[in-house]
Amino acid sequence: MSRVIEVENLTRTFGHFKAVDNISFTVEKGEIFGFLGANGAGKTTAIKMLTGILEPTSGRGKVAGFDIITERNKLKFKIGYMSQKFSLYEDLTLKENIGFYGGIYGLRKREIAERTKKMIVRLQLGNIENTLISEIPLGWKQKIAFSVATLHHPDIVFLDEPTSGVDPITRRQFWNLIYQAADKGITVFVTTHYMDEAEYCDRISMMVRGKIAAMGTLDELLLKHTAKDMDEVFLKLARD
């Protein structure tokens, strides 16, 4: 197994506030890694550092083989990103969005055309390929956004609350896409406030006030915190 994420003593402060406080962890290739924490625990700051958007105050890390400080530009071609707040351009059509992102990720025209065709067949989107994204229901949009975020076959994809507000059936269809990607060897780094989704992950970490308060498989966490499910683990840790 190879390591896709490797960070050591990663810290980021804003003034006197330590948003991320000396965290160290590794994530293996093909792993589905759940990154949990309360609002304001430091998840978003950590993700920004891992994706090369924000420079750490101290510590170091590698993602997809590239240094998150000195090789930020190379790193960006090896990762995918989507969130519930930002994914696709509402005023572009489905096809235009795919073309736009393909271009950003440095794909050739022919590659974009091939992958667009494949994706449209796989997700059965033939009848809406020329529809504006703003007219597509949220559940569909999120599935499309995920496929677009993995269009360039990244080593790892970061998903920031990808299923917030989505209906329970679509939420599960979305997780099928996650499993398929992981099966193909893409590492999935996901945050969620749905605790049943946390349980779908191979490993779960939980941030509390900038630090990683717990990390392990579901069974390990349940045993260690004598809890019946992840919801209970979360409540116990976050209230400490």
Partner: peptide
Amino acid sequence: DEPTFGVDPVSRK
């Protein structure tokens, strides 16, 4: 209207 949308489990409770 969706007062707990995107809010973590502790704050929701």
